[in-house]
Simulated assay, not measured.
Amino acid sequence: MTKLLLSLHVLAAVLAVGPVTVAASMFPEAVRRTHRDPDDREALATLRTLHRICRVYAGVGIAVPGFGFATAGSLGVLGSGWLITSIVLTTAAAATLALVILPAQDGALAGAQAPRSSPGDRSAARLAMSTGVFNLLWGTVTVLMIIRPGSTTGA
C-alpha cells in the first residue's frame, strides 16, 4: 500500500504542480506582450489559457499533500524534521499561489481586457518575482523529498 500511495503522491506532484509552475512562469511575459500590443487577440487568449491552467491545476494540486500525508503515515515518518520542513514549505508555496499569484493574475487579466489600460510592467515584474519564489519553494520541497535524511534508499 505504501508503494501505491507514494506513486500516487509523485504522479499528483508531477501532473498538478508541473503545469502550474510552467504556466505561472510564462504568465508575466504574456502580460508584457499583451500590454505591448493591446489589440493582439492571440496574446490575450494565451493569457486566459495560462491563467486557467494555473487555477485548474492549483485545485488538482490539493491531491499532492493528501497523498503525501497518507504516504508519510504509512511510512511512519510524520514527525521527521525533513517532512515537517517540507510541509511548512508546501504550505508557503500554496499560500503564495492562492494569495499572491492567482489574484495578481486575475488583476493582470482584467487589466489586459480593459480598453486602454495602462501598461503593467511593474505588476508583471512583481508577478514574475512571486512566481520565482513559488518555484523555489517547490524546488526545495522536491530536493527534500529526494534526499530526505534517514532515507532507506541508500542514495
Rank of each mutant, 00 (worst) to 15 (best):
V22M: 05
T21L: 14
A72W: 03
A124I: 03
A70K: 07
V77M: 09
L6K: 15
A112P: 00
G18T: 05
F67P: 06
G111R: 09
S74N: 12
S118D: 06
A72R: 05
T2K: 13
R41S: 12
L5H: 14
D37T: 09
T91K: 05
A155H: 11
D106K: 10
T85V: 12
S130Y: 08
I146N: 08
I84R: 15
R32N: 01
L44G: 11
V14H: 03
L4T: 12
D40F: 00
D39T: 13
A125K: 12
V60P: 03
F27A: 09
L109H: 03
K3A: 15
V31E: 01
S80P: 01
E42S: 14
R32L: 14
A43E: 06
P103C: 01
G18A: 03
L11G: 11
H35S: 13
G120A: 14
P149C: 08
L102W: 00
T21M: 13
Y57G: 01
A43L: 01
G59H: 05
L102C: 04
D39K: 13
T71E: 09
S7V: 12
T21Y: 11
G120N: 03
L109A: 07
P65I: 04
V88R: 12
P115S: 06
V22A: 04
H9C: 10
D39V: 01
D37Q: 11
T49C: 09
A155L: 15
V14A: 13
P65C: 07
L15V: 14
V100S: 11
L83C: 05
E42Y: 05
G107V: 00
V14D: 03
A93H: 09
G150I: 08
A95L: 15
E29S: 12
A13W: 10
G66M: 13
V100A: 10
A58Y: 03
T131G: 12
P103T: 04
A92W: 04
V17C: 06
A72K: 05
H35F: 15
C54S: 13
A23F: 02
A124K: 01
S86C: 09
L8G: 11
A70R: 08
A24V: 06
S80E: 13
S80T: 06
L50W: 02
S130W: 12
P119H: 00
L102M: 05
P115A: 08
L4K: 10
P28Q: 01
L109G: 02
T91D: 04
M26P: 00
P103F: 04
I101F: 04
T46L: 12
A112R: 04
A16C: 15
L83S: 04
L47I: 01
A110W: 00
D106C: 03
G139Q: 11
T152C: 11
M145I: 06
G132S: 09
F69D: 11
T91N: 06
G154T: 10
V143G: 06
A58V: 03
V20K: 03
R52H: 13
A110I: 01
G150P: 03
I101T: 07
N135I: 05
P119A: 09
M1P: 14
R36F: 07
G150Y: 01
I87N: 00
R116F: 11
A23I: 05
V17H: 01
